[in-house]
Design a protein around this nucleic acid. Structure first.
Length: 874
RNA sequence: GCCCGGGUGGCGGAAUUGGCAUACGCGCAAGACUUAAAAUCUUGUGCCAUCUCGAUGGCUUGAGGGUUCGAGUCCCUCCCCGGGCACCA
């Protein structure tokens, strides 16, 4: 790629120069240059340190042909933005930028921007804000009747979260016991176990929750042969390694006996472990070792207080009464929610070993083999084996798993309301799930409102208990408040925008500056070590193993940990090259600065960009990324503007033979051929003359000779003209008027990107000059050349030199360039017409047109009109 | 399905606020130059009628309706083309 880039860029630069584009060539840059991508990597580090770059395991768009993952924006209609292959969903660990954190601002700022409406709307839709609610649907726990909570060392039933948890569980309809265990300060697990056996009601409908030392007691109960429905260990020690173990001889003694895990597992099949990441008493590793021995699910969380010692610990309640959070914009239809649907990638299913059916597990595996298109084409799903409780109706509803629910939107779970959502309707029909109508269909006389498809509109509520008769809008508000009071719902906003996936398993891109060390974890490369150069390797083809080709080069990835200096491994994925282009405008003015990404003073002078012109295809790609990066840099104090481009205009796309130009279609129009035949000026001017700049169209060369002829006539004009005596000056007011009108029109049209009409005005002007060849003065022709210069720079410059030589009596001399002359100004007094055409219409039809002098009064104009002989018969 | 553009001569396209629709260019036709062709220049060129043959009348901006003295332009309904997004709950 490096060699190829150098060849293609050479040709690219040649063509840009040849077409007469006046760029500041001193300030050019190439993003593959280590001097440039050094700073791209530097951004990554800045974002990483600001908590805006993170790694996560998530379903990602994977292109099987490019063999890399892609960002959401880079999937166009289910296909790869680069190669067009059908995208698959793979569950992989990748790096992301938290662009979603900026979603509200990216949306809000749009209003202030002077951008093509098209692009603003595209961005708005892509960010896709929806307002609604998040609602908790509690899981239905079959056969569970009773909770027994065992407190820890030195505690009593009144301490920590016990009282609160007891009341919450009671509210949910369970029996709860919290025994006061004997000798709490110097507890003996044998004695406490005996106490529980004697005093508590334990059976196969009971879940025991043990907190800290209470967990050891719980395990002993199972060892004794007690069978339980479930066991929850909250921060229970496995080893006596915790900080002040010397002060806890009782715990050490209890642990020394060890556990009979085999019997424990036999007596209880549902075991969940909850450990606090910031625990200052029991290390997380205890939870990990328990999880291994008990083959149980370990949930890592952060307690309100370390070791879960606060009065309210929602994480603990969540374990006892797991619930599924859904997002909806139609809370008014909640009484019609007859089932829940989870995405196959829903966190709970993946991470918690809920009692889901084997066929559901199989389904999740199968989903990973499908392409996006296959998923879309047919709705499939499977019953999970679980049930939830609809918080509005308190009814038990089944939980299904289906890939028609996206993991990456909302919470990854939905309440299905088949009567009022077409997708849910189709799903319910296919799998024979109940459909309950809760909104009246207007204009339907039939009282039963039988539905053969979902009614998705709003209306009056039915089958919704106390909310019957309300209109959707009002009902949304009331139901939300009702569920809020119950503590199971809250207002929520969801965005369509996803975090920006920036890892690529390609070769060509800046390596992600991260080092993995067994001891120190994920370590950012120190800034002084940048750039991490992309090595020159022979086999750069993608591997298809989910890893970058760099993963085959130990020379690249073997490194030392910057912290402990031990052996470590570099990240081998590279950064999305869209990140390179997300900040290049900042680099242009300071392109030659070796020590900084940009010079503060120069940046202040030149940026933000006044006017930016590009393709609309970058609406949600480059333009969104660049805005995000600018906002981050602003927040971090590196630049003093949030928005990089004040004004943006999208040029139209020129297509060829009815399709986008592409090498594979063989319909590429090569400018070189036209330059060879007609010259660069003709080509560039023809492109401008073709049609409205912002519209684009099919490229045909049928009219190109028109421009060629026009430029030839201008050429002839300058050759033929004889510079007159100054006497003739100002004699021809008609020509002067046209000249000033032309200056005005061309100036304004250029500013509005209406090049086609500017050129047509130049043609009119040129034609008139030709007709009045004998009475032309220098200014007329000079103005023509000045106005023509931006369109046809080469010929204008040459003719300008000829003209100057003529004007100064043929002395051959090098004159200043036309591009150093001032742009002509028009005199608005001279533009005003002194005559106008008085159009006489009768019943909207033109019956006569009379030449009239300006400044007539209404009566005078009427009189004049009535004199027209033609109107008499009308 | 939703959201943007757009639909005007044979073609690319013009048309400030509603006020001569078709500017400018291509193409085409006739003429000039030429032995001839190309190039160049000049003139003409929306469609349909009518006749006394250079005028007169009518029609025309995707379709239909409306507002107005007057609509390519404003309002309503619909059709077609291009682009974007799309199980987004």
């Amino acid at each position: 790629p490096l060699e190829m880039a150098k060849i293609t860029q050479k040709n690219f630069y040649r063509q840009l120069k040849q077409t007469g584009n006046a760029y500041a060539w001193k300030n050019k840059l190439e993003t593959y240059n280590p001097n440039y991508y050094k700073w791209t990597q530097w951004f990554f580090l800045k974002l990483f340190k600001a908590g805006l770059a993170y790694q996560k395991e998530a379903p990602a768009n994977f292109c099987p042909s490019c063999k890399t993952v892609l960002a959401d924006e880079q999937v166009i209609q289910g296909k790869c933005e680069r190669c067009g292959a059908e995208i698959e969903i793979k569950f992989l660990k990748q790096w992301f930028f938290k662009i979603t954190q900026y979603a509200p601002r990216l949306l809000r700022n749009l209003e202030k921007l002077d951008w093509s409406l098209k692009v603003k709307i595209a961005q708005k839709n892509w960010i896709g804000k929806s307002e609604g609610a998040e609602i908790d649907f509690r899981l239905f726990l079959p056969q569970v009747k009773r909770f027994v909570i065992l407190h820890g060392k030195g505690a009593s039933p009144k301490d920590n979260f016990y009282l609160w948890l007891k009341s919450e569980l009671k509210k949910a309809g369970f029996e709860v016991e919290v025994p006061k265990l004997p000798n709490s300060f110097e507890p003996n697990d044998v004695k406490q176990t005996e106490y529980v056996l004697k005093n508590c009601n334990l059976d196969e409908n009971t879940i025991v929750l043990g907190h800290s030392f209470g967990g050891i007691v719980a395990l002993r109960l199972l060892e004794k042969g007690i069978k339980l429905k479930g066991l929850i260990l909250v921060a229970t020690p496995r080893t006596d390694k915790f900080l002040d173990h010397k002060k806890r001889p009782s715990v050490s003694t209890a642990l020394k006996k060890g556990f009979n895990f085999k019997i424990i597992k036999e007596n209880c099949r549902n075991i969940l472990l909850l450990y606090d990441l910031k625990d200052d008493v029991v290390p997380l590793s205890d939870g990990e070792s328990f999880a291994k021995e008990l083959s149980a699910q370990l949930i890592k969380a952060i307690g309100q207080k370390p070791h879960f010692r606060f009065k309210k610990e929602p994480e603990v309640l969540n374990i006892c009464l797991p619930s599924i959070k859904i997002f909806t914009t139609r809370i008014d239809t909640i009484f019609g929610a007859t089932f829940l649907v989870l995405s196959p990638f829903y966190e709970l299913i993946r991470k918690n070993d809920l009692a889901i059916l084997p066929e559901a597990k199989e389904y999740i595996k199968e989903t990973l083999k499908k392409t996006k298109k296959e998923i879309k084409d047919e709705k499939t799903g499977v019953f999970s084996g679980l049930y939830a409780i609809n918080p509005a109706t308190n009814k038990k509803i089944p939980i299904w798993i289906s890939d028609y629910v996206l993991a990456s939107y909302g919470t990854g779970a939905i309440m299905a309301v088949p009567a009022h959502d077409q997708r849910d309707f189709e799903f319910a029909k296919k799998y024979n799930l109940p459909i309950l109508q809760v909104i009246q269909v207007p204009d339907l006389n039939n009282e039963k409102n039988i539905l053969d498809k979902a009614y998705e509109g709003e209306g009056i509520l039915i089958n919704s208990a106390q909310f019957n008769g309300l209109k959707s809008q009002k009902a949304k508000e009331k139901i939300l408040n009702w569920l809020k009071e119950k503590g199971v719902a809250q207002k929520a906003v969801s965005y369509h925008l996803r975090d920006w996936l920036i890892s690529r398993q390609r070769y060509w891109g800046p390596p992600i500056p991260i080092i993995y060390c067994d001891k120190c974890g994920t370590v950012p490369v120190p800034e002084k070590d940048l750039p991490i150069k992309l090595p020159y390797i022979k086999n750069f083809k993608p591997l298809g193993t989910g890893k970058s080709p760099l993963a085959n080069y130990p020379k690249f990835y073997k490194t030392k940990c910057p912290i402990c200096k031990g052996l470590a491994r570099r990240e081998t994925d590279v950064l999305d090259t869209f990140l390179d282009s997300a900040w290049y405008f900042l680099r242009y003015p300071s392109a030659n600065n070796k020590n900084l990404p940009w010079d503060k003073k120069i940046t202040k002078k030149w940026l933000p960009v006044d006017m930016y012109i590009g393709g609309a295809e970058h609406s949600v790609l480059h333009l969104m990324y660049a805005r995000f990066i600018s906002m981050v840099l602003y927040d971090l104090g590196f630049v003093d503007f949030e928005e990089p481009f004040k004004k943006f205009r999208a040029h139209g796309l020129l297509i060829s033979q009815g399709a986008k130009m592409s090498k594979s279609k063989g319909n590429v129009v090569n400018p070189d051929e036209y330059i060879k035949k007609y010259g660069a000026d003709t080509l560039r001017m023809y492109l401008m003359f073709l049609g409205p700049f912002e519209q684009g169209g099919d490229f045909r060369d049928e009219g190109i000779v028109g421009i060629w002829r026009f430029l030839n006539r201008v050429w002839q004009l300058v050759q033929e003209i004889k510079i007159q005596d100054q006497k003739l000056k100002n004699k021809n007011s008609k020509l002067d008027k046209l000249m000033h009108q032309t200056i005005k029109k061309v100036t304004e049209d250029i500013e509005n990107l209406q090049y086609n009409t500017a050129i047509s005005q130049l043609m009119i002007y040129q034609n008139t000059l030709q007709e009045n060849l004998k009475i032309l003065s220098l200014k007329h022709i000079k103005t023509l050349l000045l106005l023509l210069a931006p369109f046809a720079p080469h010929i204008s410059e040459e003719l300008y030199q000829v003209l100057k030589a003529k004007a100064q009596n043929q002395k051959s001399k090098q004159f200043k360039s036309i591009f150093e002359q001032k742009w002509p100004k028009y005199d608005s007094k001279l533009i005003r017409e002194d005559a106008f055409k008085l159009v006489i219409q009768i019943n909207g039809k033109t019956r006569d047109v009379i030449e009239a002098k300006t400044g007539l009064s209404e009566t005078e104009a009427k009189e004049l009109a009535l004199k027209s002989p033609k109107i008499k018969k009308w």
